[in-house]
Write a protein that binds this DNA or RNA. Structure first.
Lengths: 221, 221
DNA sequence: ACCTGAACACCGTTCAAGT
DNA sequence: ACCTGAACACCGTTCAAGT
């Protein structure tokens, strides 16, 4: 006798997110979620229209922990804090970061953050198209930093991980030293992040500096 | 009577790339490629170890048309040209851009480009870790600009495309005007690129400016 | 209202067999 | 050397039926 009402959207999303965390986005299947509840795959279709809706709900759940920077901050600080906030939220569930990017506008917090960002961009001289583009870059680059962090592609095959890293290193070390000295010297740094926090801080700093350089150009024109 | 030797890796890759172009990366299946040749799915396994190897070969094929910037260019111009070259190659086959990012180091042209880029970064004061990180950002951001170009996610459902765009616009236009004036004004710009070339030029310019700002900081230190 | 069971149209891939 | 055929363990999802 199965307990009825053992399923509800919030519980399902929680389980689904756990699977995404441990097995990656491609590792999430309707059947695995059902098994985790000891239930038939079709049971989930009472609570979600389809897998796409379940994934969207997972994205919404992660987005909800986003925090909005102080609205009084000037553009540069607002951008840096917004991007840092996005990156932090995504790093908590790296495999779900594409879902965060996809669902951010469905959440009030995402809309509020974007609205204020667009406002600050506008005041800094960015026209509507450029503002929209910069907001888009910000979100997508945050996602990319997290989901393509060096070594992240091997996160779900722990037994193959070391082997794959060695294979990549061997490939770089097999290159002729006279022709590829920089690649060989950078081999370790290219296959895995030595300092993850620095990787994110630098990536964010570069993008923020780039946007501010653009703002300066616009201010001078 | 099937003609034998109708299959070879180059032909298979060509067909697979065509499918990726018209149906997206997820639309590529071993069975579809086989059907396109009027052959059994298993026929492909004579030429490729598995689907992963086929995808890698598709990536290699696209990477091969990459061009290397003039090696005498200073860092800023070299970076801008390298990134533009990457973006151009990827825009020719947007759905394959993740494969390009994945396979770039397997191609001589990719290794040469990266080697010279790392060298210029080093001369500009970037240490090994930062150089590797910047090379990584460059490649991944180029990929992201292309594969997440606004509207790109709807490219393979032409019949649903207009409907989806309308749905997104309706969502933004349903927001209260007094609270979300910028979002409403930017609605059109956020769901679709009005000027695609500008989208790419701006994205590249921002990243290049960001890297150069970093270089300036390093030079002063 | 909430879930089961059987079935369908797909996947990638193994393995033995054909020519 | 190159390809077929049958089979296996997976997918998401429909549809009718149970309680």
């Amino acid at each position: 006798m199965k307990p009825k009402n053992s399923l509800n959207p919030a519980l399902v999303v929680e389980r689904a997110l756990a699977i995404v965390d441990t097995e990656g986005l491609d590792g999430l299947t309707v059947r695995k979620v059902a098994d985790a509840f000891g239930v038939t795959p079709m049971a989930l279709y009472w609570h979600f229209a389809n897998k796409e809706a379940l994934l969207a709900a997972v994205g919404d759940a992660v987005v909800s922990s986003l925090r909005i920077p102080d609205e009084d901050l000037p553009l540069e600080d607002y951008l840096r804090e917004a991007m840092t906030s996005l990156v932090d939220v995504m790093r908590a569930h790296p495999s779900a970061s594409p879902l965060v990017a996809q669902q951010i506008m469905q959440a009030e917090v995402g809309r509020d953050l974007t609205e204020r960002f667009l406002d600050k961009l506008s005041l800094a001289g960015f026209d509507v198209e450029r503002s929209a583009a910069v907001a888009h870059y910000t979100l997508q680059i945050a996602m990319t930093l997290v989901s393509r962090e060096p070594g992240a592609e091997l996160a779900f095959k722990p037994e193959l991980r070391q082997e794959e890293l060695d294979r990549k290193r061997a490939m770089l070390e097999s290159l002729p030293e006279d022709r590829y000295p920089r690649l060989r010297a950078a081999a370790d740094a290219m296959i895995e992040c030595a300092n993850t926090d620095e990787y994110y801080a630098d990536g964010i700093a570069i993008f923020v500096a780039g946007v501010m350089a653009d703002a300066k150009t616009l201010a001078e024109a």
